[in-house]
Design a protein around this nucleic acid. Sequence first.
DNA 1: GTCTATACTACGATAGAC
DNA 2: GTCTATCGTAGTATAGAC
Lengths: 224, 224
Amino acid sequence: MPSVTATDRPAQDRAGQDGSLVSLRIIEAAIQQFACAGFAGASTREIARASGTAMSSITYHFGGKEGLYLACADHVAEQIGAVHAPLLDQIRAHPPADAESARTALLALLENFARFMLAPQSERFSQFVVREQQRPTEAFERIYARVMAPVLETAVGLLALARPSLDEQARRALVLHCLGMALVLRIARACVARTMEAEDIDPETADMLIASVRRSARTLLMES
Amino acid sequence: MPSVTATDRPAQDRAGQDGSLVSLRIIEAAIQQFACAGFAGASTREIARASGTAMSSITYHFGGKEGLYLACADHVAEQIGAVHAPLLDQIRAHPPADAESARTALLALLENFARFMLAPQSERFSQFVVREQQRPTEAFERIYARVMAPVLETAVGLLALARPSLDEQARRALVLHCLGMALVLRIARACVARTMEAEDIDPETADMLIASVRRSARTLLMES
DNA sequence: GTCTATACTACGATAGAC
DNA sequence: GTCTATCGTAGTATAGAC
């Protein structure tokens, strides 16, 4: 616990360096709780206990429950953003010039997203976002701007190359359908597991589902 | 301690006839609250106030907050079930015999579902189910058995006719993808509205999205 | 910066009048 | 059956010691 630093902006800038920093431990415990129980259902007492600190640390670092929630949103946006950033950067660095390479880039983006939807470690991030989408607050704006907008707009742009005959609205709708095919794997996970006749989704089933999403998406991305 | 007799459904048989019956008014207010704020976030005080009765009526009719929640799940299942029942009955009464009519039936089922996802009056039902799927409880079992299983299994059966070359697992995955295309319209509504560049989804945009789902699904349901 | 202790509010449950 | 009144608990926020 370093104590010689200035008191303005308490340790905010060091959050990325030290995994055991209190404010980061609080955020990680909080995301877990918010994802499980929602904003109202999560309790700051429980979050403090789970992160091994006092409840008043939350007030100190984040100003209160609301501030903690927004900090969680930023953290979630950063984490999810990091998953997609390499691919997005690569696409921006080498923009596809023909329909087939645009399709390839789009499918890579989608597969990346689908794999994230099925990854167990992404469960709490996904649940956090899903809850936020049901009743969007300021937190949604942050996540949308940081993660969703870049992915969606990149995808729409790629689709303009892959399926030039579609008009803009139809392209945007098609991007949403493709994302929906991946999204359902997380949102309706309980349904997916039952439909696939598995107790929970094992790695083989996950691979099969991802391959299936890819196949279906590829079909939709071809000019008919 | 409350006796278990509180659960033997007083006046339940009149629920369908009298819209102003207290227990029904409570359930409708409760679904609204549970959908908005989740189980933990909803307060029985607020539900009682919104339904114009005393808090203790909830104890009397449902045994407590938990019992009220389960009653809401049953009500939601009944309402959503009613939306799909006519189509399911029709399909069962006249089972399609060839691939093309199976496709037609499947598309009708999907369009019905997509339209429900976009209907404003279904918002609270959808939100209730979405929340429940994130962390399934007994309530999910009831909704799944009453609504989801019949729709999903009917769809899988139809797809066996529409795309006989696929194996069972691939067919089940494909059904989930198609539902995902419709589901995303509700789950990620905030994203959908932004992507379609609308403040909220107006009727014209909704029709366009539904037509697009139908078109994409039709493509996926054709033998390649 | 982190802790303990406490103030204050809102919750769900319940008892008892009618 | 529905109401009012009240109990005990758990919530957030805050003050102040160290």
